[in-house]
Design a protein around this nucleic acid. Sequence first.
DNA 1: CGTTAAAAGTGGACAAAGTCAACTAAAGGA
DNA 2: TCCTTTAGTTGACTTTGTCCACTTTTAACG
Lengths: 144, 144
Amino acid sequence: MDKEIIYDIRQFNRFYTKVLGLFNNQILDTDYSLTEARILFEISERTECIANILVQELNIDRSYMSRILRKLEKEELIEKKSSTIDSRKNLLLLTKKGEELLEKINIQSDQQINQLFSGLTDSEINVIRNSMMVIKEKFHKNRF
Amino acid sequence: MDKEIIYDIRQFNRFYTKVLGLFNNQILDTDYSLTEARILFEISERTECIANILVQELNIDRSYMSRILRKLEKEELIEKKSSTIDSRKNLLLLTKKGEELLEKINIQSDQQINQLFSGLTDSEINVIRNSMMVIKEKFHKNRF
DNA sequence: CGTTAAAAGTGGACAAAGTCAACTAAAGGA
DNA sequence: TCCTTTAGTTGACTTTGTCCACTTTTAACG
């Protein structure tokens, strides 16, 4: 593979690390960490969400996940329901309060994106979106 | 801005967070953290690199940066030279050892990229690269 | 069937990463 | 000159993340 292409990809990675850093720092406005927000999000997106899926999806240590989930439960953002078919598993569910918080974070994140792209035309935004889709699709094709 | 576009962008951000996570975890093979590697990289890329630039560029707390740099100095990866024109500033330089480590990390990172894209054709890789360039360029245009 | 292995989760102890505020010292003005 | 800004450091602290040992339950298979 060409040196120059590798260089460009690594440059993009550095650049996008910074972009994501800026995006993510703003979530802290809500007294919850990015990780906690991600966990709430993943729970809401999945039917039958269990801790181990989150561990794999978010690349977080099992014990650490256990603690985070306990904290979220204590703050009444989530509930754990022991699975009836496999009692090792706890089904994770958002509480009303958890859903409300997630909704708040979602609105905030959407605004953030809006703001960030405010200097671009619709057509330019679409070009970015399409590029993102292409990258994602190609990576996926390569079993990522 | 369209709900759907925002959705796609946020999805990409989640996805690429994971990609970067996987990329970065492999740097730990060298006993140095991603942040330390980034600092070495930035020092090598710049003439007249000072701590405060790194603080801004990498979004790291001043005090934390100070400690990291002290550690890197202690391990003889970098040197600090007090600037003659402004004695508040320390010019940061890689030592021979620092250059060697960075080179090692670079080779490893290049291999990692290579490996990751090994299932794709040249043309597909180029499509990805171009998409990355587009995103970066558009963001920059928007004073990012 | 019983034994062994794997999956899911927890808890203790600890290390690494990051934050906050107070501080020194030098430089840059009005 | 005095005040402000910039650069960097230090102490004390919190948060985040890691490692390992452990329990409980299910799956696997001779």
